[in-house]
Design a protein around this nucleic acid. Structure first.
Lengths: 239, 239
DNA sequence: CGGGGATTTGATAAAGGTCAAACTGAGTGG
DNA sequence: CCACTCAGTTTGACCTTTATCAAATCCCCG
């Protein structure tokens, strides 16, 4: 599946295997929090749109938000889901490259005036450090997803997605998991069609790797097989 | 190809089309530059490896560098190519998630001790701001690539790649372009097989969208068609 | 108790991967 | 200077994976 010919040459050196990163950022510094304005959104409500001027930075307090790009032909790629504690909306340029909208009702956001926060970041090292760290974490997360998008089969993508969500959810129990987003959203996040996402979930269920309490409530039964379907119970070929 | 059913609902709102970002960062602040140690690498030389401790941050002065992740089965995903002016090596955690190696001989790097640079970022607003901006730009770039990886055909991916390289190269002429990396590298960057990359280039050549002066020297003849192969000369189906 | 979006399932086709082989061109040694 | 080599690239044949089209089913909400 990959171009392994040159890969083979490299493999001896890079012994270690790629692993995504669990990591949680602490609370923002209080100086920063004092700038926040709290607001609540309903499901489907747009926070900002592609090409809007970037006036605010945001943090998800509770709920779920999706960041996506639309293409000329109407195709959509969800670039990220933002969970409680995650930041979004910062950009080096003046306008946003993506659209962001709330996925569920009662999504609560902290909203920071960009100008004032940038000044604060310049003057308060805690704030500067915090923002830097946050940006670095986002880079790590995007890089991990790049690997998933580029080099995984449908079942592996869905498996990786479930693990990612289980780990990023603040729940204690990483084996039970509620998917707040639709199959369509999952598909556009993983670069698959809805049907393929559905079939992958069915395949994982039938092979006993996961169980579905309801369509959106997933129990992770065999975490190892979910992370590495190629050596697990899940047979190759999906059907 | 996408799950357009829900996408249709959204399309009315997101009128604008997604466009990647050309953007060049200026020179780093001199306070920062005074920390730099310059070094030169040969082709294939590893700068750091997955799981190495992150002790330095780097900037490409000249040449070309690739950042990639290896997976358990030997598959490789190139997460980014770094061109002159680009930074790499920063992470929120202690160890690197990716391996970085030079693609061509005489690749020159500026190497910054992480500890000291972080202190400097805390004390010197110019440096803090510069690093923040750099991180934000990298986020933009990764997001743009996510769209390409997730929702494009092989020919579109290769087209987008050529455009990206043409724009990121500091050359005045964005129509002639030298690919310093191999087809294998391009394949692992785009999540394709080498053969498919080669066929896509051939297809673009035959349809007159590009011309190949030699295998690695590309002339962009019809930039519009390269960006939007679906409405261009390039017929769907590739063969 | 509908109604309609969300999800699943099935049949089919297209895109891209894989395997195999030929070709190209830069370096190497005779 | 030329055969030779070998990595990199291209091309061809075939086959797997996933998208697409179509339809059934589920289930949430009024």
């Amino acid at each position: 599946m990959a171009s392994t010919r040159q890969g083979d040459r490299d493999r001896s050196m890079a012994v270690a295997q790629y692993r995504p990163m669990p990591l949680r950022h602490g609370e923002p510094p209080t100086a920063m929090q004092s700038l926040a304005v709290i607001s609540s959104c309903r499901s489907g409500e747009m926070i900002y749109s592609q090409q809007d001027t970037a006036i605010h930075w945001y943090r998800v307090v509770s709920g779920l938000v999706k960041k996506y790009a639309m293409m000329a032909d109407g195709q959509r790629q969800i670039v990220d889901f933002l969970l409680p504690g995650n930041f979004f909306g910062f950009t080096a340029r003046d306008e946003h490259a993506c659209t962001v909208e709330a996925v569920i009702d009662h999504t609560v956001l902290a909203c920071y005036p960009r100008q004032r926060l940038e000044v604060l970041a310049d003057t308060d090292p805690d704030v500067g450090q915090f923002i830097r760290k946050m940006a670095f974490e986002m880079i790590s997360r995007l890089q991990a997803r790049m690997v998933i998008l580029g080099r995984k089969t449908a079942v592996e993508k869905v498996g990786a997605f479930l693990i990612e969500m289980a780990e990023r959810s603040s729940t204690r129990n990483t084996h039970a998991l509620v998917l707040a987003m639709s199959r369509y959203d999952i598909a556009d996040y993983l670069g698959l069609s809805v049907e393929t996402v559905s079939r992958a979930l069915t395949a994982l269920k039938h092979s006993g790797v996961i169980a579905l309490a309801s369509t959106r409530r997933v129990m992770i039964v065999n975490r190892g097989a979910l992370a590495e379907p190629r050596n697990g119970t899940a047979r190759s070929g999906m059907w």
